[in-house]
Design a protein around this nucleic acid. Structure first.
Lengths: 111, 111
DNA sequence: TCGATAGTAAACTAAATGGTTAAATATATG
DNA sequence: CATATATTTAACCATTTAGTTTACTATCGA
């Protein structure tokens, strides 16, 4: 009952993650909730453009937005990230098997 | 020397993963190398369309293609998958922290 | 109440995406 | 050699994407 949405959503999740601005927004939000204006500040595009990116993230379930007066507080929603992670995990044996020689550039996630 | 390409490539990798046909191709290739025609067979689109999808996968580094006479053998390249995995791992603490209640839908990757 | 602030919506544009069909290019085979 | 097979390329089309600017809608605060 957590996964029934997952398969259909992989499209939207990976699509959302494919844009550097949206990944940057996610990285910002990893440090805590923020308003649209706050999130837009470091980016060299219009507020409307950031607003659209946030809409994409919200549609993919990657953020949740809470209206607080005239300000919208955005919060990172981890579940879709874990869905994407889950899909990739399928293939982990693959690079564990094949990338021994290159090795350890992923090992930092294990410690 | 494995990661210098990584940041720039996340765009292409996630973009490549965002299309269900391409994910299906990856899943096919996980069972072993295959030719373009073999890969195309289960899909209800033209061979040319599959060829384009494979080109996207190749550009993202997700497959390697080896010409063998008139047939092109495609092989899964795990490294970009591990790069995407690596990016997501950054946020693992997030869903580990927050999704305890939902829990265990990822736990099957640990056993 | 008036003006500033926060944000979305609308209309537009350029480029990218995902598909098609038809033609082209090798290579294999009878 | 002639034909069939494997695959890409080209030309085209419709839709989506990512951005812009300009309105519009709330809401806050003096």
């Amino acid at each position: 009952m957590v996964d029934q949405r997952a398969a259909a959503d992989l499209d939207a999740i990976f699509q959302a993650l494919s844009h550097p601005t949206r990944r940057a927004l996610i990285e910002d939000l990893a440090t805590g909730p923020a308003s649209v204006t706050e999130l837009a500040e470091p980016h060299d595009i219009s507020l409307a453009a950031v607003s659209k990116h946030l809409q994409v993230l919200e549609d993919a379930g990657l953020i949740e937005v809470e209206q607080d007066g005239r300000v919208r507080q955005c919060q990172l929603e981890a579940e879709p990230l874990s869905v994407a992670f889950g899909w990739l995990t399928q293939y982990r044996v693959f690079w564990d098997d094949r990338l021994d020689a290159l090795g350890d550039h992923l090992e930092n996630e294990g410690q």
